[in-house]
Write a protein that binds this DNA or RNA. Structure first.
Lengths: 216, 216
DNA sequence: CTCCAAATGTTGTTATTACAACAGACTTTC
DNA sequence: GAAAGTCTGTTGTAATAACAACATTTGGAG
């Protein structure tokens, strides 16, 4: 088992921060490390105050959508962070719930403690904020790409857009989703997606075998 | 005509910063104020280095989508900022173009100059980062809401979700879009949207008159 | 190897949407 | 206040997707 410091060091939120400073930082942020068993609730819907840093295991974030369905928003394996968008946006209410998908260790940090008005150790304040900013900005970019996909009116156009983005310029690439997950990501019916993929193959637009795709 | 300092003060990126410090900050960030005439290009697609602060006028951000269509991403009137997501995410390439929709004054700041590794005046560094973080996080929240709308499979569900979010809990509210813009936002055909709205009214789900809506 | 379960592909039917074309209402301008 | 232009609503048709039900393939486990 790796120790806490090694686990934390690999987290993007601590990028650029020295291992030896880690303990000071946690102290100055009044942050503690929590252990959760599979299924334990880590955060409930409400006014967001803290964000979480996943040291080990996986955290699942869900929410109830407008129709009352429980939607899985994300699975955050270590090293990852969650709830940082909601606290940074200063939302009054965040409908998300986070719980341990498997046993995990998590650092919870009060956002107020890394904020400019906070007077504690400021040596790392800017660094932490910068890392958080990078993380949030990346999420915004991903969301923006998804909006671009979803804005297309046909499954074919959604697929072409999705595959372009997945391939990142390359003509051959492997995607990290099965058909079911892919369909949910681009918000279309799974069988309709399979059907469209087949048609596109027949028309010579793409080739594929399971998760390996090639754009012609 | 308001002076530059008043214009800047109202910008969310400078929230919490005193008027009297503004000049120091601009110096320390090596930032200058640029004036553009209507139609002038402010930023081209490429590796993003700088983000913009709109002091007066309006900046339009566009991009070419995957099919080659020119898409209007946003109109940013003063006091607003643009390109901050791309620089903060550290993208290698950003396909956005920004130009002056009307005559405008803009501060352009090199993101590297407010970054933790930058050694200049750090009194305001954390404050600027925090404000940027709030701005980017807000954009992420907006994008997330749009994904939720677009993930629905029928126009009716898209509309109900859109109206819920627009109303923010209130039963009666006014929306800032006409039908055309509304249709583009939720990515459906305008006439189909009008049609669906009428059906929903006939079924007693909603009432509306132009931009004033009421959820029953 | 055989059986099983999961993933993927196929087909047909029904529901929904895009698109086009037009009608009516509302605004603006002269 | 008439005319022009814009915005919104209506209708019909063709295209597309959802859904359901089933077939086939794949990858393991015994």
């Amino acid at each position: 088992m790796k120790n806490i410091f090694d686990l934390a060091k690999s987290n993007p939120i601590f990028k650029g921060i020295d291992c030896s400073d880690f303990k000071n930082i946690l102290d100055s942020l009044q942050a503690s490390i929590f252990s959760y068993n599979k299924g334990d609730v880590i955060m409930l819907a409400g006014k967001p105050r803290r964000f979480g840093i996943v040291l080990s295991g996986t955290v699942r974030v869900t929410k109830e959508d407008i129709d009352g369905n429980l939607v899985i928003l994300a699975d955050i394996p270590a090293p990852g962070i969650f709830n940082e968008v909601c606290v940074a946006a200063g939302l009054d209410y965040c409908p998300h719930t986070a719980y341990a998908l498997e046993n995990c260790e998590v650092v919870l940090i009060d956002y107020g403690n890394i904020t400019a008005s906070h007077t504690a150790d400021s040596r790392f304040q800017a660094l932490l904020l910068e890392n958080m900013l990078a993380s949030v900005a990346n999420k915004a970019v991903i969301l923006d790409q998804r909006v671009e996909i979803l804005s297309k009116h046909t499954i074919r156009k959604k697929l072409l857009c999705f595959l372009e983005l997945q391939g990142r310029g390359a003509k051959k690439f492997t995607i990290p989703y099965n058909r079911e997950e892919m369909a949910r990501y681009i918000c279309v019916d799974r069988s309709a997606l399979s059907h469209e993929l087949s048609k596109m193959r027949d028309e010579g637009l793409i080739r594929f075998q399971r998760n390996e795709f090639e754009i012609m």
